[in-house]
Design a binder for these strands. Structure first.
Lengths: 187, 187
DNA sequence: GTCTATACGATGATAGAC
DNA sequence: GTCTATCATCGTATAGAC
């Protein structure tokens, strides 16, 4: 593996485990096995490296939701699969985790995150609308508002789980959301 | 105002605006108008000050939820008032915001946060159970799971709002959650 | 491309004068 | 109680050798 790639992989790992501000050049070097020379040869600096690492993370996460929200699938299955997808409860969302940091909000990193959120929300909205069209959910349901709620349940579930140090918190939040959706089902 | 109190107020503000790690002694001193001597005379260090500041924050937030979940109120009103409480969407929850930081999770600060979360969840669960008892919500509803979901919607709503830089994101998430609860209503 | 050496400000804290 | 040195360490980056 090239040093450049080793640096990117180390950055991905550290961004997830510790966040952007805590991802120091020193840690990146230790984890990647590369020296400072390599870091600043291949990248303009810490933020440049983070952007490239997060672009990879973004692509990986998009691949997952593309499959979950496959339009061939039953809309209720899409919603169920999103809510029940396996997640690393105590580590948090690889992207959402970062918006707590001031420096992230002020940088381009924030764009990657908000675009990803927008994509997932659109998928949820479509699934909800398809469910309404097929009679699985009541026509009165506001697909936009509910799509935001469902996405918020997942992001918030990570916070509850981390605060309690207990993955179960996320699972209960997921289940509760699914129960509400199912309860609304007009089937 | 005593220097000691000025330090605590400055810490409360910085913890909310910037988080624990970004709250440096230098910033605390500038904002409070106190010197380094005062800081280390009144407190053992940065973490000690943070704990005392957050104990105050905790008390203030508890006063708010104690009122929202007043058992004299109609259970559905309690749920509605919690979901629609006014919030500083872009700044985040004064406590929940902090669990993204590694140092916070490893410190006693985390206890304050998780205890607060537990309290709110218990209030939500009671409101849901009271609503079931009065026939406002179906008996089959899992009060524990749904209570986690509702709390997660709020915590996640902050994340969506911050990522988008738009308070509206939180409001939509709140509305969506309330619509789901209302939709389940057996009234 | 990769490394080591060096720089400079910020962080978090201590010492000691007033 | 409050202040101003002073300190060791870390974070972030540049320079220049190999």
């Amino acid at each position: 593996m090239s040093k450049r790639n080793a640096l990117v992989q180390a950055a991905k790992s550290l961004l997830w485990e510790q966040g952007f501000e805590a991802m120091s050049p020193k840690k990146i070097m230790r984890l990647s096995g590369a020296g400072q020379g390599s870091l600043y040869h291949h990248f303009e600096g810490k933020q440049d490296l983070a952007l490239i690492a997060l672009a990879e993370v973004d692509a990986e996460m998009r691949a997952v939701v593309d499959e979950i929200f496959d339009r061939e699938k039953d809309p209720m299955d899409r919603l169920h699969d999103y809510l029940n997808a396996s997640r690393d409860e105590l580590k948090g969302c690889k992207l959402g985790r970062l918006v707590g940091e001031k420096t992230v909000l002020e940088s381009n990193i924030c764009n990657i995150i908000s675009k990803y959120f927008t994509t997932v929300c659109a998928y949820l909205k479509t699934a909800l609308e398809d469910a309404k069209a097929s009679g699985d959910l009541p026509p009165s349901l506001d697909a936009v508002a509910v799509s935001k709620s469902l996405q918020a349940v997942i992001q918030g579930g990570f916070i509850l789980a981390r605060a309690a140090g207990d993955p179960q918190e996320m699972r209960q939040a997921q289940e509760g959301a699914w129960m509400m959706i199912e309860g609304l089902s007009s089937r």
